[in-house]
Design a protein around this nucleic acid. Structure first.
Lengths: 257, 257
DNA sequence: CGTATACTTGAATTGAGTCAATAAGTGTGG
DNA sequence: CCACACTTATTGACTCAATTCAAGTATACG
């Protein structure tokens, strides 16, 4: 288990990244980006997009592949354009806490100083835009709107982190699962056709490590939610929400202001 | 328990704040501020300080008094200059999770959009500088270094939030207490005379709600740490670190990179 | 088609919680 | 200064939600 070694693993991806970047025919891919309007990039005026194109490269990662490892020099920032990424921290004995799942348009790389504070690993086949930190920092100076936007993203992430602390510290296993499904629904439903269906790209073990539980408890709680008529499973990865009211009650948060 | 009402409680303090602000003799108190070099204000050049003085007011809060309540309109940002503040979120049934303790020089008010995402309440008699959000945002536009600094603060807080998620989701009660003492030592020792003593301004109940435990478990774990020779208590609020090595081991984090 | 992997289910165990009592401070007023 | 009430912290006995250990079942894959 060399997961916590301080050796940089970012290089492993860089070759792939270069290849992928070179493959692209379009001279300004940012303009055609599917998540542009949703991500931090929306802070840019159309005429500024080429400046982003100049410093961006594109990488792809397969399930289980690392984007970076906790402790690696934090040389790059990312925007996830497709797939799903998990972020996690580990204790020396292997206990793991997943601190977040990223979905398309999410920004990656805020919680860092000189080195990444957590590891990032692909859950599904994923595509990311990669920005060299130095060059992006230069852009921040030139485009204040981008920095403002980044502060907004950080603010949202901090609020989400506090919700997760409330979940981890004070909710029951059943409530944790309910909250998890509820927040996934809010994040992914807008971009999906079926408003009452959730696809779970991550394993039960990932869900357990995100909620501070074990796989067995996750499985048991899912079964109970199914028996109570709150949800149903087409496959273990595909959830149908049958009673949104009950799910909201379980998640413990009355409603958003 | 009207703790979660959406009515603003900020007004209760504003009268006090005005009085306190008026009391001050100095025309530019920021210049003489004890925590200036440590807080976000250090991003300002000396010649910019008067601009901060123009929009700042000073408030004081007693233990148990609210600075603001979750859901209040987020009209102000703060810098803690003295004392200790706890931040928390609650579930409808009263379960509480403290998401952080603030100490002098800490910034308050990042995790918010239109409304505060958590409540802030004084643990000890505390003094804060209060900045109207609109006016501070204007300053951010004019002083890019301030915005850069704020992004750095947000980055640090996000990293701390992830450490706390690891603690809440995966550490044992004993490890939680060890980590808590260890991080308090790192935060407050540099500013204190005794490098091996920690003062705990918060109650056992606050510590429990911060670590996702009960008061009884906190008490039992403290007793065990004492019996194991890791710490000793002069009073229930004053801890003497007797074996820093053991404490570090317990906290589970090998070391900082 | 066999084998590894992921998920589910059951039985036994346990770490932390709940309930209850005691002890130690803290402050108030006589 | 002491007696009283009140809050905070500690300790003990018992309980339980979630974990651990152990099968079993389904699903994907070479």
């Amino acid at each position: 288990m060399s997961q916590l070694s301080t050796k940089s693993h970012t290089e492993a991806i860089m070759g792939l990244a270069g290849a992928k970047s070179g493959d692209r025919g379009s001279p300004n891919p940012c303009e055609a980006c599917a998540v542009r309007g949703l991500s931090v990039c929306s802070a840019l005026e159309p005429e500024d997009l080429p400046r982003l194109d100049r410093i961006v490269s594109h990488i792809q990662v397969s399930p289980g592949q690392l984007v970076f490892l906790e402790g690696d020099p934090a040389d790059h920032l990312f925007v996830l354009t497709d797939g799903c990424i998990k972020l996690y921290k580990m204790l020396i004995d292997g206990r793991r806490q997943i601190t977040g799942f990223l979905f398309p348009s999410d920004f990656l790389g805020l919680a860092m100083r000189e080195r990444y504070a957590f590891s990032a690993e692909a859950v599904a086949v994923s595509a990311l835009c990669r920005f060299p930190k130095r060059q992006l920092e230069q852009l921040l100076v030139e485009i204040p709107a981008l920095e403002r936007r980044l502060l907004g993203v950080a603010s949202n992430e901090l609020a989400a982190a506090q919700d997760q602390m409330l979940l981890l510290g004070r909710k029951t296993a059943q409530e944790k699962l309910g909250s998890f499904l509820h927040s996934l629904l809010r994040r992914t439903a807008p971009r999906s056709k079926a408003q009452d269906r959730i696809h779970l790209p991550m394993s039960r073990a990932d869900i357990a490590d995100y909620l501070g539980l074990t796989v067995e408890t996750v499985s048991r709680c899912f079964t109970r939610l199914r028996k109570d008529g709150v949800v149903d499973f087409t496959t273990p990865q595909d959830v149908l929400i049958r009673d949104l009211g009950m799910l909201s009650d379980l998640s413990g948060v009355s409603d958003e202001y």
